[in-house]
């Protein structure tokens, strides 16, 4: 431990450069993950932020949310039998402000529920991102499919669907606009909800795949994140491997004077841990700061859980890389190591 620390103290510049590479690679991974998660959140925050439960779609909808229509009698029966259940629908659309400027929204309506905003007829509650587009409480909005007008009653934070801000409206208004009496989905906030004839049930996670384009987009985003994590992880492992293999002459000298192999492993691990932990702490701190300071319009979502999970992955692969180099050093005879170091 002491010898590992002494080397780092004496070769500050070298270890600082090594640490800064780890910092930059991990910071890049965190930021890209944050942006990818942000896009994913932008697509389905409305659904993702709902409590754990079961979603039901019509069996004929072929697992596609847009095509689902729940029979009204069945809906009423489910609502009666399951207190807390809610029927809801989402449709893409737009609203016009007083200057006749169009704003894309995702109209959401539901039966009375704690999960969704309760809105009276002629009222609308919007996602707060629309504030940046100049809409304020009390504004009057219109829609060409709706005979009346909507008065903005308030805003809610981070409620997005299909990259559009959510607009909560009353069910009667919704039925008039989309000329449909049935709701698309029923949600029961319970882990083990019952089965119903004619309906297909989905968990929160599997329901996201019923949203058109969500799974395709998510697949691309996940590929970006995991490619980045795998490549960064490999860089970490190769990096620590190379760092130690380059010092093989030094390890040869220490082996020659009789230093225990476990002491060499400890030296390798301590240096790897110190560099990685300091670099990751900086990356985590800065990425969380970016999470707070990121421009409002930029979809950036990086939870501490994600950052901690990625940090653990980096620590593990760094440890593996360092340990593999340790085995190389363990295997080699001291003289051979010294000679290799002289090359």
């Amino acid at each position: 431990m002491k010898i590992a620390w002494k080397e780092m103290k004496k070769n500050k510049a070298k270890f600082l450069i090594l640490g800064s590479i780890i910092f930059l690679v991990s910071f890049l991974t965190f930021i890209i993950s944050g942006l990818a998660n942000g896009l994913s959140q932008d697509n389905a925050a409305l659904i993702k932020d709902m409590p754990t439960g079961q979603f039901y779609l019509n069996e004929d909808a072929k697992q596609t949310y847009n095509l689902s229509k729940i029979d009204i009698d069945l809906q009423e029966q489910i609502m009666e039998e399951n207190p807390g259940a809610a029927a809801f629908s989402v449709q893409m659309g737009f609203v016009n402000d007083a200057d006749d400027k169009q704003h894309s929204v995702a109209f959401v309506t539901s039966t009375e529920s704690d999960v969704f905003e309760t809105v009276q007829e002629g009222e609308i509650i919007l996602d707060s991102s629309l504030k940046d587009e100049g809409i304020a409480v009390g504004d009057v909005l219109s829609n060409n499919q709706f005979s009346g007008e909507f008065i903005v009653k308030g805003f809610v934070d981070k409620k997005k669907y299909s990259h559009a801000p959510v607009a909560y409206i009353n069910m009667t208004n919704y039925q008039e606009m989309y000329r449909v009496m049935e709701m698309q989905t029923i949600f029961i906030p319970a882990k083990d909800a019952p089965m119903f004839i004619g309906l297909e049930s989905f968990s929160n996670k599997s329901f996201l795949n019923a949203i058109p384009s969500y799974s395709a987009e998510q697949m691309s985003l996940n590929m970006i994140i995991w490619f980045l994590v795998v490549i960064s992880g490999m860089l970490f492992a190769i990096f620590f491997y190379m760092m130690n293999v380059q010092k093989i002459g030094l390890y040869g000298i220490l082996k020659a004077i009789g230093m225990k192999t476990i002491a060499l492993f400890r030296m390798i691990w301590v240096q790897m841990m110190v560099i990685t932990i300091v670099a990751l702490a900086l990356s985590v701190g800065l990425s969380q700061l970016f999470n707070v300071l990121a421009p409002a319009g930029m979809p950036f979502h990086l939870t501490l859980d994600t950052v901690m999970m990625l940090s653990a992955v980096f620590l593990i692969v760094g440890f593996i890389g360092a340990t593999i180099s340790g085995f190389q050093i363990k295997k080699i005879e001291p003289l051979q190591a010294i000679q290799q170091g002289e090359m």
């Binding site: 002494k6 004496k10 009789g258």
Partner: peptide, 20 residues
């Protein structure tokens, strides 16, 4: 290794001191 550590001493051609 134990014999090297306790019973032997080495002087190499180019001293091979630990640089740090």
């Amino acid at each position: 290794r134990q014999v090297r550590a306790k019973e032997f001493g080495f002087v190499f051609q180019s001293s091979h001191l630990v640089p740090f």
